[in-house]
């Protein structure tokens, strides 16, 4: 165990001290603090792996309340017999992701459990970030009149993972969008601190996230199907498998509710960031149909967007 931490984990993640706790110096009026566990199957998928996912996921949770991520901890639960080279690859991917996001991994832990007691590797990450003064982003702060901005095409992560798990080959391959969103959110906040609500639509997809915001903020949300960017490969895969892209998981896009007067400015700042290049205005919050999300479809019809319940299953006929 000593050698696993000292010889592999610490140097891979650049952890320099071995006391029981890391000492951190933070000056801030308010902090954001979050934790998440990652059990994705398969652990390597087109566009990423469980390591980059675990770092980006926690970075993004911090970024979605407007926080600047500073420090992160990593806990690994490893199944006995897990290949060392795979572990090293995952750790190096975590280190790269942390460097890209500008967050420091300051503490780590590993536990090895017996064969069959875990599925290869599970990762928990926790993160701390500083929230700038004057920023009050929350899923319950959306207001009628807010513009709804999406930072890029949806559905890539879910399709990439399903394709890898089930052995589907798409040409060109659909890549996961796992990426840190903290610099993008920083760019947005440099235009205005008046971002009312912001989320990264992970499990449950964009549809579920918008419904959650509509319910917690008590607003109606109206979105236009044609305005939502979806890559051709993702669209094709969804039609083939019977999935609705609105409910397919993402790991690298955000949706923000911004007051009308700031919307254009925020959108153009987002488009200058490589991770927001395809940002689009997809709709607005309204005072009507509170708690409901209405989708204006490509053919001009209207329908409700509900939360995802159960699983999306491949169709059989």
């Amino acid at each position: 165990m000593h050698s696993l931490i000292k010889d592999i984990l610490a140097p891979s993640l650049d952890i320099k001290t071995f006391d029981d706790s890391a000492r951190l110096r933070v000056e801030a009026e308010s902090l954001a603090f979050t934790t998440d566990s990652y059990v994705v199957d398969p652990i390597f998928f087109p566009g990423g792996d469980i390591g980059s996912l675990a770092v980006n996921g926690t970075v993004n949770d911090l970024a979605m309340v407007g926080a600047d991520p500073l420090f992160m901890t990593v806990g690994l639960i490893i199944e006995e017999g897990f290949e060392l080279h795979a572990l090293k690859e995952i750790l190096s991917s975590m280190r790269n992701a942390a460097d890209k996001a500008g967050v420091r991994i300051v503490a780590g832990d590993t536990k090895v459990v017996g064969k069959g007691k875990a599925d290869r590797i599970f990762i928990n990450t926790s993160g701390i970030g500083v929230i700038p003064v004057g920023v009050h982003i929350s899923g319950s702060n959306a207001r009628p009149g807010d513009r709804v901005i999406l930072s890029g095409p949806i559905g890539n992560h879910g399709i990439a993972v399903i394709a890898e798990r089930e052995g589907f080959k798409f040409n060109p391959p659909v890549l996961s969008d796992t990426r840190p969103l903290n610099l993008l959110s920083k760019n947005m906040l440099s235009v205005t601190k008046n971002i009312n609500a912001m989320r990264d639509p992970t499990r449950g997809g964009l549809g579920t996230t918008l419904k959650e915001i509509a319910v917690s903020s008590g607003v109606g949300v109206l979105i236009r199907e044609d305005a939502i960017p979806i890559e051709a490969g993702v669209r094709g895969a969804c039609e083939l498998l019977g999935y609705d892209p609105l409910y397919v998981a993402n790991e690298g896009v955000l949706v923000a509710f911004v007051p009308e007067k700031d919307a254009e400015g925020v959108l153009s700042a987002m488009r200058k960031n490589p991770f927001g290049r395809n940002s689009a205005l997809i709709g607005e919050a309204v005072a009507e149909h509170r708690g409901n999300v209405v989708l204006e479809t490509s053919i001009g019809g209207r329908r409700l967007v509900e939360m995802l319940s159960g699983e999306q299953l491949p169709r059989i006929c």
Binding site: L295, T297, S298, I299, G301, R302, R303, C317
Partner: peptide, 17 residues
């Protein structure tokens, strides 16, 4: 008759037309 039609009808909001 077909479930795929049912889903297409809902997804496109066709009833509202």
């Amino acid at each position: 008759v077909c479930g795929t039609h049912t889903v297409a009808i809902f997804k496109s909001g066709l009833r509202s037309l």
